[in-house]
Simulated assay, not measured.
Amino acid sequence: MKKLKIGIIGGSGYTAGELLRLLVNHPNAELDFVFSTTNAGKPLDVAHPDLIGDTTLLFTDKINPEVDVLFLCLGHGRSRAFLEANEFSASTKVIDLGNDFRLLADKEFKGRDFVYGLPELNKQAIINAKNIANPGCFATAIQLALLPLANANVINEAVHVNATTGSTGAGVSPSATTHFSWRDNNFSSYKVFSHQHLGEINQSAKQLQSTHNQPIFFIPNRGNFSRGIYATVYTKFDGTLDDAVELYQEFYKDAAFTVISKTPIALKQVVNTNKCILHVDVKDGMVLVTSLIDNLIKGASGQAIHNMNLMFGLDEKTGLNLKSSAF
């Protein structure tokens, strides 16, 4: 097939940088334009030094409304305004990496119907979709820990989540809690029990377990590392360890990137990959699931490309055969 012409809106952040790194090496993709009003006319490697020698493309403040795929890498709440102000071809497929269209109440906009793009949950719908709402990073890690339980209708008590993300999860713009002297040798929580990703997590759990009405108590933490999410999720469970492992292995038996480890896991196993690695344990009537992802790849740009591959009939792993660094 001919190469897909790609447009990217909001090209200077961490998420866009990872998207560009993956797309310049994707055999079926061709970058058409990268839109950035602040960097228009400058080489991409001005914002993303790792791209030096990989592309000669310049940032632009103009769009091509006829691209095959449009990736929106804008701040949360800004995708809707951009699509309101700019028209694209009816054949252009939109993948939004923000949170504007993730909830069912927001999925329809200007004739576009957005499908929630978690491949392990909505693969067939993604294959047939014209527009995708890419999941949030914390939401991805936590949902993949919970979906097999919801599918088995066994989330019958409160769910407790403790998850830590790297500094890139806060975006490229410096802030009081991201600069080195604050973040280094430090650890803190934020948005306790009120994180914005809880809406999509509950929505997906209810999609599989219609009776789901249990609270999910989520404590998000800031870690003193650059990238990755380490999440632990636990709730009451009546079965054995073998029962729990079987639930997870069966649910993810056809998943391209989500795997179950029989041994305890560590964050470096997923950094720089599109994998989610899960470890399941059962103790004292509780199931404990550890879920690891790279927040910028599986939690954002890699998952967006996974969705693109599905939408255009490509092998799911195209452009995403990435290896982690174990040391």
Rank of each mutant, 00 (worst) to 15 (best):
G11C: 09
P135L: 10
L19A: 09
E84V: 01
G77S: 12
D113N: 14
L20P: 00
V67G: 09
H26P: 11
D32H: 04
N99I: 05
G10N: 13
K62E: 14
I132N: 02
C137M: 15
K130D: 14
I127F: 03
L44S: 03
I126M: 08
L20W: 01
R80Q: 12
L74C: 07
S89R: 04
R112T: 10
V94G: 11
Y14R: 00
D96T: 02
V67T: 08
N25G: 13
A47F: 03
I126C: 06
D32W: 00
A90E: 15
I132C: 03
A47K: 14
A125T: 06
G75I: 09
K42S: 08
F88A: 09
I52Y: 11
L104S: 13
N122I: 01
K93Q: 10
R112Y: 09
P65R: 08
A139D: 02
P119Q: 07
L23T: 08
R112Q: 11
L74M: 13
E66K: 08
L57H: 05
G7P: 06
G117F: 06
I126N: 03
L104N: 12
T37C: 06
L74P: 04
T92Q: 11
E87V: 12
S89L: 08
L121C: 14
N122P: 02
R80N: 06
P119S: 09
A105Q: 14
G13F: 13
H26G: 12
D50Q: 14
A125E: 15
A85G: 01
L103D: 02
L44E: 04
K93C: 08
S36A: 11
T37L: 15
C137D: 14
T15R: 05
N99M: 11
T15M: 02
I126L: 07
L104M: 04
F109I: 06
D54E: 13
A16H: 09
I6Y: 03
P49L: 07
A16M: 09
Y116Q: 02
D68R: 08
L83E: 05
E84Q: 15
V46D: 12
K123R: 15
S79W: 06
T60P: 04
K110I: 01
I9V: 15
A125P: 01
T60E: 07
E18T: 14
N128C: 04
G77Y: 12
D96L: 00
I126G: 05
R21T: 11
D61I: 05
V115E: 14
N25K: 15
T60R: 03
G117Q: 07
L57W: 00
D50K: 11
V46N: 05
V46Y: 14
R78I: 01
P49V: 09
E66L: 11
K62Y: 10
T140Y: 07
A125R: 14
H48G: 05
I132P: 00
L97N: 10
C137I: 02
R78M: 12
L70P: 07
G41I: 07
I127C: 06
K42W: 03
R80W: 04
S89I: 06
T38R: 15
L118C: 01
H76I: 04
R112S: 11
G13D: 10
N28S: 14
L104C: 01
N86S: 13
Y14W: 05
I8E: 03
